[in-house]
Design a protein around this nucleic acid. Sequence first.
DNA 1: CGCGTTCGTTATAAGTTGTAACTCACGCTA
DNA 2: TAGCGTGAGTTACAACTTATAACGAACGCG
Lengths: 215, 215
Amino acid sequence: MTETGTKTPRERYRDQVRTEVKEHAREQIATAGASALSLNAIAKRMGMSGPALYRYFASRDDLITELIRDAYRSLADTFRTTAESGTDLPGLAHALRGWALDDPQRYFLIYGTPVPGYHAPEDITGIASEIMTILLDASTGLPTDGPTTPFEVDLGAHRHWAGDHPAPPAALHRALTFWTRLHGVLSLELAGHFTGMGFDPAMLFDSELAGLAEQ
Amino acid sequence: MTETGTKTPRERYRDQVRTEVKEHAREQIATAGASALSLNAIAKRMGMSGPALYRYFASRDDLITELIRDAYRSLADTFRTTAESGTDLPGLAHALRGWALDDPQRYFLIYGTPVPGYHAPEDITGIASEIMTILLDASTGLPTDGPTTPFEVDLGAHRHWAGDHPAPPAALHRALTFWTRLHGVLSLELAGHFTGMGFDPAMLFDSELAGLAEQ
DNA sequence: CGCGTTCGTTATAAGTTGTAACTCACGCTA
DNA sequence: TAGCGTGAGTTACAACTTATAACGAACGCG
């Protein structure tokens, strides 16, 4: 952060415009979904012509990729600060839910419907593994009950996806189920599949979290 | 199938073209995602001009809604036939996974990223509750262990979402977690979030299924 | 102060969805 | 069987979209 002074006025202006474009893009995505994102509409709202935005983003997909990167970055940051403040696995879970509810479409930018051909850039997968590492750190050290399953043996053998994290196989398994179960409740809630069902999604979330703790 | 004779030739032709359009649409969606679906491209592949398709579908969204309806119908059918053949909850789970893997984009048509403004037509929510009823039927009658949680009391009180299904509160809870947990694993697998992780998604799925049984 | 980089513009190409108006042919009915 | 109406497919068009190209102007660095 000490190098901000080295930026030229043009660079600062450029960054400012880029963030403003992304703000409008986020607003537009929250309103009508990512597929309805229009560079032209953003340009008009910013008071300039359509093609001008191509000075700042190579293409529409490039802008969306940037938003996906920001989403990952944002999730990794909230995870990291939450973990650094000494909170445990349930704390991480509630941080996740709060983050997701804060901007559902941002959540779906990461965990939503994949575009068949699309492959995320290398640095994005790096952030994803950063998130996984934080989750693994929090999963380690808890008491493990029950015998080690064949699946956990398999997990212990192939842990390169965890950055070769030195967690016991049960912890790897716990982190994985933490991820899948909370995503299961959360994504259905955010997608509106529980609307009109009368029960409180937060209670179902906490119920799953409780089941996660005693396993 | 015995009532096909009551249709006029024009109706039969119309139905044939409609299904052919939907086949091309499904193929296009599987290749490049739902957002890349183009009526023009479909028309050209079928050897006719773009606007001709508007005789068969009122709009692009109308076609997509039709595909969503078909997806729900297809899932309800496989669920129903699976349940009718006497299979239990695990059988239902494997039927679900097989159905999802058979056409991932069809799964995401139902459970993928929601479009903010969109509301599914009434009949589609009807099919959704049909699916839920089958799941509730299969969830009823299993032994319930552990005390009834406050959440389950709440579920028992607001069961109109289940079509007032006469299942014990624990069964309502079981059906809900069946849904959320399997969706959690399945959606992450289908979205490719497990690729390159080295473990077998089927084992994680079965592990979750096992945890579901002993709860 | 000048010069080069960068920004924003308009023009244009090639797409898209969707409407309007016009043929034409199919098939029901008289 | 003859005719007529309905529905299918066409082209033309409007209003969008993404994206490129070429031009002018302004900004800021040396």
